[in-house]
Design a protein around this nucleic acid. Structure first.
Ligand code: MN
Ligand code: MN
Ligand code: MN
Ligand code: MN
Lengths: 222, 222
DNA sequence: ATAAAAATTTAGACAAATCTAAAAATATGT
DNA sequence: ACATATTTTTAGATTTGTCTAAATTTTTAT
């Protein structure tokens, strides 16, 4: 494991996240968008990362992480999510306040620190946004989850994650007491605007399609 | 408070520490030594910091922190020492293992994070090495302390700090069960090699001058 | 199939932080 | 006081990461 700069780590993480969208290879422009930078800068960085064998690159063909690159991405993601849990559980931050701080903390280098933090937090499987936390070998729990918007009236489940984790969306959920872990039931779907009547916990409310399209639910079997 | 790079913060901190040695102004060469870099690099950085009004600089005359520079140094030192307390108290690190990790953590930017960490740790006044932790206004407790080597036979006090905080020295102290907070009594001084017979806690032992010259003691009055 | 559009790469520049080698200023010793 | 030694600064180069503008390749549309 050679040393990586913060910027290199951020690119690798960005590529990893884009790869979760199912694409075989990630386009320069997509990565530029993700990293909030110019395609020319991405090309430069891609060459360095390819040199270090963290990704596969053929000119004009986009990139794909190597095994080594994937492992590195998972290490950074592990740190990011563990720090988020720390900030929420130990320092009382709200779930919409932790991302930017975790963006900095994820680059702190010390395997011992990460593993002890993991232990302090009781080896959490998921972060405050419902995303899985890789263990020290890069393995993580997966669980069945569907977007609420993809569920049918009459079905039910448990609220387990968010797709959009912007502060605005998270605060909106707070305001309506929509929390991870709560049972959720789809009562009715308005075909006109696709808004949904749901029961969350023991309260009923109506939410727009945009909200339903950003909430993950673990469906109850049957 | 404009943004500072990690490197700028490290220089400011280095200058602050050298200034504690009493000098009116800090020489380029002294700072180069401290920062483990070349004098020419120091000159470059000094110009940038002077531009930002963090220090006073006249060519060939060395540097001195401005008010603003001092405040900035204290903010970084506060973070460094709070993180050291966190690592020891909450993650169970030994006092000789925390410095390098704190060197990284001290650059994390978030006033809220620092203040909440401070609260989690119960607003500690001193770090694991006995150094004072500035509060959010940059104020810190001072306490009377003398090098053990400067104390006379028959006098006594409490062990409150280390001058050398290298891992080797700290491990040496661990091995001989010399811990901060323990009462210490000077029994006899060998004039030949200045080694000391002391009682620490309830054990007697003999230590070399080099050890005594790196241990701080709060002397008992009278 | 070719021309136009879009995506990607290259070329050249810049800021931060470092280095080596050379020049300039300051300090020291007789 | 003046030559020598030491310290400090300057000049020029390098690495990382970014940018703009131009060139090149790929994709899309007619
Ligand atoms: Mn996050
Ligand atoms: Mn998260
Ligand atoms: Mn330290
Ligand atoms: Mn310390």
């Amino acid at each position: 494991m050679e040393i990586m700069t913060n910027s290199e780590e951020n690119y690798i993480k960005g590529i990893y996240h884009l790869s979760q969208g199912g694409q075989h290879s990630i386009a320069t422009s997509a990565l530029a968008e993700k990293m909030d930078t110019k395609p020319s800068s991405v090309t430069d960085m891609i060459k360095r990362l390819s040199e270090k064998e963290l990704l596969h690159y053929k000119k004009y063909q986009g990139v794909r992480l190597t095994e080594k690159g994937t492992a590195q991405a998972l290490r950074v993601i592990r740190k990011h999510r563990l720090w988020e849990v720390f900030l929420v559980d130990k320092l009382g931050f709200a779930w919409d306040e932790v991302h930017d701080i975790a963006e900095q903390l994820e680059h702190i280098e010390s395997e011992m620190l990460v593993d002890r933090l993991d232990a302090l937090l009781n080896f959490p499987d998921f972060d405050p946004h419902g995303d899985p936390i890789p263990d020290k070998n890069g393995r993580f729990k997966t669980r069945e989850k569907k977007l609420l918007s993809a569920m049918l009236p009459g079905s039910s489940g448990i609220c387990v994650g968010v797709k959009d984790s912007s502060s605005q969306f998270l605060k909106f959920l707070d305001k309506h007491q929509i929390e991870l872990g709560k049972p959720i039931e789809i009562l009715e779907l308005e075909s006109f605007d696709r808004s949904m009547h749901i029961k969350i916990g023991d309260r009923k409310l109506q939410i727009s399609h945009q909200i339903a399209a950003n909430l993950y639910v673990k469906p109850k079997p049957e």
